[in-house]
Amino acid sequence: MEHSEITIAGDTPGIEWRLPVLRFRGDTDSAPKVYMQAALHANELPGTAVLHFLCDRLRKAEAEGALAGDVTIVPQANPIGAAQAHFGEMQGRFDLAYRTNFNRDFPLVTLAERGDLLADLDRETAVKRLKRTLLHMALGAELVLDLHCDDESVQYAYIDEAFWPEAADLAAALSMQAVFLSDGESTAFEEAVGHAFKRQDDSQCAKVPGRLAVTVELRGRRDVYPDTAKADADGLFRFLVARGVVRSAEAPVPAFTELAFTGPAVPLDNIDMVRALEPGTVLFHKDIGDIVEAGELLATIITRPGFADGIYEMRAERTGLVATRTSDRFVRRGDDLMKIVCKDRIRIDRAPGTLED
């Protein structure tokens, strides 16, 4: 394993950030190259724990001569966000200096323009240098995994339709309960990688066999446990074996049928974003992973505590899988409560891009 650090100068005198990068060298030029990062939203830490345990397995594979493809790991991709706290709580999702999401505004370039990402880098702000550096590293690989998590959530992923259903092996290896098929129209990291993969030169491809750019949502923010992290690391290792990155006797290459993903894989227009219609204290009646029927009670919001008429009931408008739930127990009007995965298209007014800011 090779360890290096990328130094990112701060925007004020005397400040700099260090980005650790771990590289495992394969011995087969034709094998896929892999890039994985975690904690781009600095307060989303399940992926950091998963990559910690995956590195144990990669070190062993490298030492045994079982590593075919190069693997680059950035276990904490956002040292800038990790240092930003407000009243004792790490913010992580939004840059306090420029009020932008750390997982938005990545440059949209073709694969042939990869080298341009590092041109005149010293003229950019620290956050833009970080984003350009991460994207440049990722575009040197064929398989790119960006590890995130939701608030309270089942295991799921955002995958551009250009990589589906080939990416069903990853969904199965990680025992995902759902896949959200994205349209590739945002400036999030994974979609910026996908943008380049689909536009390797001036032409655009609808499908990109052998390549992958995916955002993996590793359950919820509080789901940072040794057992789940090790299990997910094992799942990623199985995926690497299946894709020919690792040769492993203990985890032989599984047949695609054995890695078949059986959960729902639906476009973003099939995701019902359940939002609070009244402010107040939330009492949930349904948990993540539940299948709900239209008309079932999802949550009671106590709008006027102590008053007989002081509640508002939120009911499911459609049948589906509760994929996510807010961890907040006090909500404002319009706050997100749940994402429900539905069989049919239910949204006709969604702008292309992501579901949330």
Rank of each mutant, 00 (worst) to 15 (best):
A173E: 02
D160N: 10
V224S: 11
Q155G: 10
T228F: 14
S175D: 11
D202Y: 01
C205L: 14
S153D: 07
A192L: 04
R222K: 12
F180L: 10
V193R: 14
G184T: 08
T215Q: 12
Q177Y: 00
C205H: 15
I159E: 00
A206E: 07
V208T: 11
L170Y: 04
L174R: 14
M176Y: 15
M176T: 11
D202H: 06
D227H: 14
A188W: 02
A196M: 15
R211W: 13
Q204M: 15
F163R: 03
K198N: 01
P209S: 00
Q204G: 00
K198H: 01
V208H: 06
R221L: 04
V193F: 10
L218V: 10
C149T: 01
R219L: 04
A162T: 09
C149G: 01
E217Y: 06
D146H: 11
S182Y: 15
T215D: 07
V216N: 03
M176H: 11
A157N: 06
I159Q: 04
D150E: 14
L174A: 04
P226D: 04
E161D: 14
A172K: 05
A171W: 02
V224E: 11
D202N: 04
K207Y: 10
V193C: 13
L181V: 07
R199H: 13
L147E: 00
A196Y: 13
D150Y: 00
P165H: 15
V193S: 11
M176G: 03
D150G: 05
A192Q: 03
D150K: 03
E152N: 10
A192G: 02
L174W: 07
Q204K: 07
D183H: 01
T187L: 00
V208M: 08
E161Q: 12
Y156E: 13
E191D: 09
L147Q: 01
F163Q: 00
D150S: 05
